[in-house]
């Protein structure tokens, strides 16, 4: 399907509140409520968006919100959809999608490690990349990386000072 037909199809068949925004000829975003994400994703999977390319998150610290982005790709439509949803920053929780795509389990581990977002239903949220991490999740905007680095690994000093 062309992008226009695709958007019309989604508008017609997916009744919940949503906001569709076209980025360019090959990709567009759909923003939905947090509890309708699973419905939208399973609907999109049905219309041949079979590949989950990435799950990632954006920290909007001023609005006190995390934006969670699911990037889907379809080989038959040659279209990319960015499904976006917002969760509360103080209580970041969202349903897992690992039952739709197995690979989501890994991405959710990653997002959990770097943003501290909980995925309800995913019981395997062990640390994935960082070694022995005890602080705030490092990709949150209120985490001061430079301060951490200086305190943890030592500020650069000249040889005489050591």
């Amino acid at each position: 399907m062309e992008q226009k037909e695709l958007i019309e199809h989604i508008e017609k068949n997916f009744k919940y509140k949503k906001e569709i925004k076209v980025i360019d000829g090959k990709q567009f975003t759909i923003t939905v409520e947090k509890d309708k994400v699973l419905n939208l994703l399973s609907f999109l999977k049905l219309i041949d968006f079979k590949q989950l390319a990435l799950i990632t998150a954006v920290d909007w610290i001023d609005e006190k919100k995390f934006e969670i982005v699911y990037i889907l790709f379809s080989y038959s439509h040659i279209q990319q959809i960015l499904v976006k949803t917002f969760v509360d920053r103080d209580n970041p929780q969202v349903e897992t999608v690992k039952n739709l795509w197995d690979v989501a389990s890994m991405y959710e581990r990653d997002v959990h490690e770097f943003f501290g977002i909980d995925f309800i239903g995913n019981d395997d949220l062990r640390p994935l990349i960082l070694h022995n991490w005890k602080d705030l999740p490092p990709l949150r905007k209120d985490f001061d990386s430079l301060k951490y680095s200086n305190k943890m690994f030592g500020k650069f000093k000249k040889d005489e000072e050591i």
Binding site: H131, P138, S145, L146, Y148, S149, F153, G154, K155, F156
Partner: peptide, 19 residues
């Protein structure tokens, strides 16, 4: 490995190997 280089403010890269 001397002073962190372009990773001087990274949370996961060490700054000074000689330590």
């Amino acid at each position: 490995p001397i002073n962190g280089g372009i990773y001087y403010d990274s949370y996961s890269v060490i700054n000074r190997l000689a330590l």
